[in-house]
Every structure is written in structure tokens, then in C-alpha cells.
Design a protein around this nucleic acid. Structure first.
Length: 706
DNA sequence: TTAGGGTTAG
């Protein structure tokens, strides 16, 4: 049951009870009291029937169960005075005064941050007015709420130039303002110059480094803190456990875990959730589950984290089971839950599950949630239902750059480059700022659809008009685009003109283009660059091998095969699957194990002939050593064509791989097997490991054993 | 006394 937002001049238990039903098992709710200092958190004890914090003079209070996104304050029928508050801006105000300060604070109180910063202009114009801590605090909240860098600069400059002397509390708030707006250089300078730092100051700066992905610096600071400050709280540990997860350092995470136990904060909810996340991200789902089991109170976030952990490991079935357990336990599910579930359904490639998740999401009131809907857009477009994706997208009440990117990428993947560009232009018209992922999606779409001119224009406009500096992946995309058009010299010039060292992806794009357009010289040059960078990547050798083969250079081709044999490189088979009549069917390249393989390949042959009648010439691009002619023929069929064929035949499926017993496998191979076991929902018998990874002498050559 | 922490989408 969703508890509505309540606004009271004073809050009584009866008022709460009359407006919402609270589960009797829960005795204590967090209340966010909107006071002068905004996000102050107090606790309202239903047992004691009073506010725990005796200092709180409650002017206005919002009570909710932590639902996200945080609801906007709105006039409540319980409080007539709030009606008066709806028009907070007095347009007659021209000069700074205590009254304006009060109005500014009220605007922030109601989440109208933009208007608050507009009102602040009056102070900036006149200058010299000492606003007092509470108004500065409100301005800090406005900047944090908007994540506005110009806002931070304005407020900070005003404070400094008007002689404001912040106390410890305000110094920490100023630090937080810089941290939350991503201004880590300024934040760090401010922190370094603080003559007195308390636990909050340390936690704030460390969390800032973790948020920006600078985990090493976070650890460095943590160690200094540990030495200088001789203290750390549960919040510090939760943050540092997050940093361990970011670095994938399970050893550090375990040390922190033992510290929390020694210091008696091991049961802290935040610490537990961070631990679950850390263990699952570091590959130990068992430890994650152990921490989850030990949690004294299993919260929504705890459930979400463990479900996401299972999903991360490919245990989608288990994750769904956990989701059902969560539902049965009566814990509130939030938009995080549904975002995770949608992603799991996408992984299971099951339209049925996804539709159920979509329905549950709407049923639980998260039908307009931005993250869950973006996940749905992505899912539907990947599933091939681009129109459904568009429908979800159109119905979204608010969209962010990620939502736009998901649909643009969807159109690109469906070969609908024009639609992708149209959507991109619509995005610009709606004043949504594109980021580097947007440009990647648009450029890929241009590349797939052969829209080289559009692509080139957009690539040039990126840095010039949108201040998004092209990265290596954008260059690789452009090289692919030019390469498809046969503009190999231009593509090569782009590599040479790049303002950074060309990456393997860029050379690979050029090499592929050289194969398609039979440019032996340039292809060889690109391949040699690639060998230096990725000596163990099979595909690079295969592409060069094909160039030599198709241009009749059999001697050179034989040399490449020799190199491959010497390095012990073998093909890692690709795998695809399709759901027919609620049964998932899995296929590998060259897979001959299906019970109805004869009918399937007959159908494929028939389809290929039909396609050929319409002028399609199959590209004989895969020429592998050690693969017989029959298998070559099968390999040349794209898995989608197999799927088309198979869609016409209703039958249970059969099995993908076989690996010799007694061989040791590396973790990558294990993951591959688990994936297939998960998709097929059957046990996999391993008979022949040679189809996996860098198989050599009966073992994986990487030496990273499970 | 106020301030700082954990899970999701491209």
C-alpha cells in the first residue's frame, strides 16, 4: 500500500492512520521533515507516539515509505495553509530582504529549485546582503537537487565574496554540494583546506571519489582517515565496500567485512546491502546469499541487491524464484525491483516473462517509472518488436537521455537508420542533450544503413556543436561506416588523424573493410597492427586468412593457418536460441545434435534457394582451418535463418555442446556452459572441450581454472 | 542539532 505524501502543520498518529494504512508489524517509519534545514531525517516512533527528536519544530512534514522517485510536495486536503503556499513567488520583490530569504527557503522546501535560483539573482545583483546559514543551506539544496554546476559556482562565489563564514555544518554542506555536482577538483581543494574535519567530512569526500569511479583514491583517503582520524562509521564502511566492488577486489571487501563485524556494525542495513552487492559483483554469490540470510530485517534494497546478484551471474531462474519469495514475504517492491526483473526477462529471451513483468510493473504503480520503462524499450527492441518499444517510449511521461539512446540504438539494430536519425533530430528539438552513447547509437545506425553522409555530418558536429568529444568507439564506428562505402583511404586517414593512439577496434574495423573491398596491402598492415595488440584473438587471423584465400594467395593463407595451429587457437562457437511454443531451442555453429536436424537443414536449404531466386548471393566469408566442407556450409548459415526454419517446426529442442570428461575448464568456459544450461534448463554433458576458448592439450590455455 | 551511506536502465 502506497502511503501518500502528507503535509501537516503538526502530525498526529490519528491523522496518519486516517489517511493511510500501515502494516502493524512495522513500528517505526522514517519521516522526512521539511524544516528550515530541509532534508533533516527524524524518526517518528509509532509505539512512543511522538517524535524522537525533541528539537524538531514541525512546520511541515512529508511522510513516505521511501518510494522513489521522491514525490513532489503537493497541496494536501489536510492542511488549508498549504493552499496559500502554492504561489510562493512574489513577483513584486525587487530588493534583497529577510522576507525574500524566507520565500527562497520556501521555494526550496517545495522542490522548486529552479525558481529559487532565479530568485537568488536579486541577491547577486545587489550583493552585500548576508543571507544567513539557513538560506545558504537552502541554496545548497537547490544546487544539489538540480545538479547544477553553474548554480554551485554562483552560490559559492556569493558566499565567499560576501564574507560568509561557514561553521562546521555549512562547510560540510558546501563540500557535499561540490561532490554531488561532480566538481571533485573543487571539492577536494575545499576538503584539503578545511582546518577541521569530522566523520561527515571524510565520508562525504570518500563517497564523492567512489561515485566518480576513483576507487583507488577513495581507498587512499580511507587509509589516511583510519590513521589520522582513528574512527570510521557504518556509512564509511558501506562506501568502502562499494569501492571494493567497483575494483572487483574481494580480498579488500572481506577485510572490510571483518572490520564491520569487529566494530559491531555488521548488522547495519546499508553495510549488509553493500556487502551483498560486493560479493555478487566479485563473483561469490554464495557469500552474498549468506549475508542476505543473516540480515536481521530483509529490506526492499536487500532483496533487490540479491536478485540483481543472481541475475548478474546468469542465474535468471533463481533470480525469478527470489523475486517470487520477495513478493510472498510482503516486502514492498519498488521501481528497482521491476527494473531488475525486466532485465532478467530480457536475458531469458522470453517474451512471456517480459509481458508478465511489464504487467506487474503497471499493476504495482510503476508504469511510468523511467528506469523500468527504459529497460522495457531496450528489451522490446532487442526482441525484434521495435513498434512495441516505440509504444512504451511514447507513453513514458518523462524520458532521459538513456531512454532516447535505447530507442535510437533499437532503430539502428533494425537497420532503420532513417528512423534513428529522425528520432535523434526529435530529441534535439525537444532540447534533450545527447551524450557520447547517443552519438554511438546514431553513428552505428548510419553505418548499418549505409548513410555515410549523414554519419559524417553528425560525427563532425559532435565535438563542434554538442561538445561531446569523439572517443575511440566513435572513430571505430566512422571507420566502419567509411569502410562499408569502400572509402578505405578516408578511413585510414581518420585513424592516422585521431588525437589518440588508435585502438584495436579501430584497426579491426579497417581490417574488415579491407576484406570486403579486397585491399590486400592495407588489410595486411591493419592485421599486423592488430596482432601486436591482440595476439590471442582468433578473429583477427580469420579475417586476414579470408583476405588471402579470396585473393588467391594460398601460400600466405597457409602461413596464417600455421600460426593459428602454433598458438593453439580454435573457434569459440557462437550460440543463439529461439523460443517456440514455450520451449527454448539452442543452436551452435555447426550444431548437428538437434533431433530434427534433417528437417531443419532441408528447410534452410529450401529457404536459401528461395532467397537466391530473389538475387541474394550468400557470402562465403568463413573459411576455417580444420573444419570439413559440410560444417563450412552450415557455418555459413546465419543463426537467424536457422531460427526461421525452426519456427516452422514445432518440436522440443536438443543440446548444444559436448566436452570430454576430466578436462579442466576455465571460468569463461564455465560461464558459457552455465549460460546454455540456463537457457535450455537442462543439465549439460560435457564431452569435448576443444570447442571452447583457447583449448590446448586437454586444458584451457589461459590457465585460469574454475 | 543540522550534514554523509546501500540496489536499477542505454
Amino acid at each position: 500500500m502506497e502511503i501518500p505524501l502528507l503535509c501537516y502543520r503538526s502530525v498526529s498518529l490519528d491523522q496518519i492512520r486516517s489517511s493511510c494504512s500501515l502494516p502493524s508489524s512495522v513500528s517505526d517509519y522514517r519521516c522526512f521533515i521539511k524544516q528550515k534545514t530541509l532534508s533533516s531525517v527524524y524518526r517518528f516512533s509509532l509505539n512512543r507516539r511522538k517524535w524522537r527528536n525533541p528539537f524538531a519544530k514541525i512546520r511541515c512534514c512529508s511522510l513516505h515509505r521511501g518510494l522513489q522517485p521522491r514525490p513532489k510536495p503537493k497541496p494536501s486536503k489536510f492542511d488549508a495553509d498549504v493552499e496559500e503556499e502554492t504561489d510562493l513567488r512574489d513577483t513584486q520583490i525587487k530588493k534583497p530582504s529577510a522576507r525574500v530569504c524566507s520565500q527562497l527557503e520556501k521555494l526550496v522546501l517545495y522542490g522548486r529549485y529552479r525558481e529559487a535560483l532565479e530568485l537568488f539573482e536579486i541577491f547577486e545583483q545587489y550583493g552585500g546582503f548576508d543571507m544567513g546559514s539557513s538560506t545558504y543551506d537552502a541554496l545548497v539544496s537547490a544546487c544539489i537537487g538540480l545538479r547544477s554546476i553553474p548554480g554551485v559556482k554562483r552560490v559559492f562565489n556569493y558566499m565567499m565574496s560576501n564574507g560568509f563564514e561557514p561553521d562546521q555544518y555549512m562547510r560540510n554542506r558546501i563540500l557535499l554540494m561540490h561532490v554531488k555536482c561532480g566538481m571533485m577538483i573543487h571539492a577536494r581543494k575545499w576538503f584539503d583546506e578545511m582546518h577541521e574535519r569530522n566523520l561527515v567530512s571524510w565520508n562525504t569526500i570518500i563517497a564523492g571519489h567512489v561515485d566518480t569511479g576513483d576507487y583507488v583514491e577513495a581507498f587512499r583517503l580511507f587509509l589516511i582517515m583510519w590513521e589520522e582520524f582513528s574512527d570510521a562509521g557504518s556509512r564509511t564502511f558501506a562506501t568502502m565496500i562499494q569501492a571494493s566492488a567497483g575494483l572487483g577486489l574481494i580480498s579488500a571487501g572481506k577485510q572490510l567485512h571483518s572490520c564491520t563485524l569487529k566494530m559491531g556494525v555488521g548488522d547495519d542495513i546499508f553495510v549488509s546491502c553493500a556487502l551483498i552487492d560486493m560479493y555478487s559483483k566479485c563473483g561469490s554469490i554464495e557469500d552474498a546469499h549468506y549475508v542476505f540470510d543473516e540480515m536481521p530485517e530483509k529490506t526492499t534494497v536487500g532483496w533487490n541487491t540479491i536478485i540483481a546478484g543472481y541475475a548478474l551471474h546468469g542465474y535468471s531462474e533463481e533470480a525469478l524464484d527470489m523475486y517470487y519469495d520477495m513478493r510472498d514475504s510482503g516486502v514492498r517492491m519498488d521501481h528497482f525491483t521491476f527494473s531488475i526483473i525486466v532485465r532478467i526477462c530480457a536475458r531469458l529471451a522470453s517474451l512471456d516473462y517480459a509481458k508478465q513483468a511489464h504487467a506487474a510493473l503497471v499493476r504495482h504503480g510503476f508504469g511510468s517509472d523511467i528506469v523500468a520503462n527504459t529497460a522495457l524499450v531496450d528489451f522490446y527492441s532487442k526482441w525484434g518488436r521495435i513498434e512495441d518499444a516505440r509504444n512504451v517510449f511514447n507513453k513514458m511521461p518523462c524520458k532521459n537521455v538513456i531512454s532516447w539512446n535505447a530507442l535510437i540504438a533499437g532503430y539502428g539494430n533494425h537497420g532503420r537508420g532513417d528512423d534513428a536519425i529522425e528520432l535523434f533530430e526529435l530529441m534535439l528539438r525537444q532540447r534533450m542533450r545527447p551524450n557520447h552513447v547517443t552519438f554511438l547509437a546514431v553513428l552505428s545506425a548510419c553505418s548499418y544503413s549505409g548513410l555515410s553522409e549523414h554519419g559524417w555530418e553528425i560525427f563532425q558536429a559532435m565535438g563542434r556543436d554538442y561538445t561531446v568529444k569523439p572517443r575511440a568507439m566513435h572513430y571505430a564506428c566512422m571507420i566502419e561506416l567509411l569502410g562499408r562505402e569502400g572509402l578505405l583511404d578516408e578511413a585510414f586517414a581518420l585513424i592516422r588523424g585521431a588525437p589518440f593512439k588508435p585502438t584495436a577496434n579501430m584497426w579491426a574495423a579497417l581490417l574488415t573493410a579491407c576484406r570486403v573491398h579486397q585491399n590486400l596491402e592495407l588489410g595486411k598492415f591493419a592485421a599486423e597492427k592488430l596482432y601486436g595488440m591482440e595476439p590471442e584473438k582468433l578473429n583477427n587471423y580469420i579475417v586476414l586468412l579470408n583476405i588471402y584465400n579470396s585473393s588467391g594467395k594460398l601460400k600466405e593463407a597457409a602461413a596464417v593457418i600455421q600460426t593459428l595451429r602454433r598458438k593453439g587457437l580454435r573457434m569459440l562457437p557462437a550460440c543463439s536460441w529461439i523460443e517456440v511454443n514455450k520451449v527454448t531451442n539452442v543452436f551452435h555453429s555447426g550444431d548437428k545434435s538437434h533431433a530434427q536436424r534433417k528437417e531443419i537443414y532441408q528447410k534452410v536449404d529450401y529457404l536459401m534457394k528461395e532467397i537466391a531466386k530473389h538475387g541474394y548471393v550468400p557470402e562465403n566469408k568463413t573459411l576455417l582451418p580444420d573444419v570439413d566442407e559440410q560444417e563450412q556450409r552450415i557455418l555459413s548459415y546465419h543463426s537467424e535463418k536457422l531460427a526461421i526454419a525452426f519456427g516452422l517446426i514445432n518440436t522440443p529442442y536438443w543440446v548444444p555442446l559436448q566436452i570430454v570428461q576430466g578436462h579442466r575448464l576455465c571460468s569463461d568456459c564455465h560461464k558459457a556452459i552455465e549460460l546454455i544450461a540456463m537457457v535450455t534448463r537442462r543439465e549439460i554433458v560435457v564431452k569435448d572441450a576443444s570447442r571452447f576458448h583457447h583449448f590446448k592439450d586437454g586444458n584451457c590455455s589461459c590457465g585460469d581454472y574454475w
